[in-house]
Design a protein around this nucleic acid. Structure first.
Lengths: 147, 147
DNA sequence: GGTAAAAAGTGGTTTTTAGTGGGTATAAGT
DNA sequence: ACTTATACCCACTAAAAACCACTTTTTACC
């Protein structure tokens, strides 16, 4: 579904033009109806076609909310989830609270991730590409991987 | 039901305007009758549509109250629970005791959490988003999750 | 390779709706 | 009865949505 990345810009009103190819995919798979929310592990946003979100949402809602980690995920993912629609020119208006969360400014990066997209501030994206090199345990599925 | 977050403000009389979309949902599901109470784990408030509260309340009341944790939950949740109604302009008056509990000042954050809403002081919310990194056990339901 | 046509991206304007503030009346409590 | 607090109402301001026009880039065809 979604692969590849694009530089995109947010205009002075907080609107973002979706690149044509991505837009076509979105229109096809969900009539341009999408849901944007917070990523819990990095300061970026997740963009789901509406049907994908409908699958994910109950799983999040069902997490045991007396557990701190689960509560954090719920708060962020449900708490920031906002349905968006394309305007007549194929743009979406990014809500203020999401802009704040992901520290979005003018220059953004839209990154395809198969069933969803990630939206980053360009500078945070570049920092992440340069710096992030996680240590810690590696699941078997990862060690077994051969690129 | 409720998702997404909004910046809201409390005016000099302690009133808070409910954002239009949220207001519509509230009017539809409970005629604008809601119950606001304390969250036991964080200094924020819970906002329930009245029917949701009617389901929850007996469960709280039935907790075994010789247990300290259960007693704490009962005292806070039942003790702060206040029915509220929207005024003609779609605003609610926030009771003083609830304002104190959640340290509400002018700038607030209203966060959708599916069947309920959370109401935070904006600064406490931002602190929580930035700082909270729960340790402790991670339930299987969480480790298995793929966003 | 050049030109024309279409599509995509960008910016601005207008209209409508939501949010804010305050004044007055009413009720409640002292 | 007087003071304080809450509800109701009206008017103003600000923000969002819809609409429209222009520039730039791409694509197709000559």
């Amino acid at each position: 579904m979604f692969t590849g990345s694009n530089n995109v810009t947010m205009d002075s009103k907080g609107r973002m033009a979706i690149p044509a190819k991505t837009r076509d995919t979105l229109v096809e798979c969900c009539g341009g109806r999408l849901v944007m929310t917070a990523h819990t592990e990095d300061r970026c946003l997740l963009v789901y076609p509406e049907p994908e979100w409908q699958e994910l949402q109950p799983k999040i809602a069902a997490l045991p909310n007396m557990n701190a980690k689960a509560r954090r995920i719920q708060r962020l993912v449900l708490g920031y989830a906002t349905p968006l629609e394309l305007d007549g020119n194929g743009r979406v208006l990014l809500p203020q609270t999401l802009r704040d969360y992901a520290q979005l400014e003018k220059k953004l990066m839209l990154v395809g991730q198969n069933n969803k997209l990630e939206l980053w501030s360009e500078s945070l994206w570049n920092n992440w590409v340069d710096q992030d090199d996680p240590d810690g345990d590696v699941p078997d599925a990862v060690s077994a991987l051969s690129l």
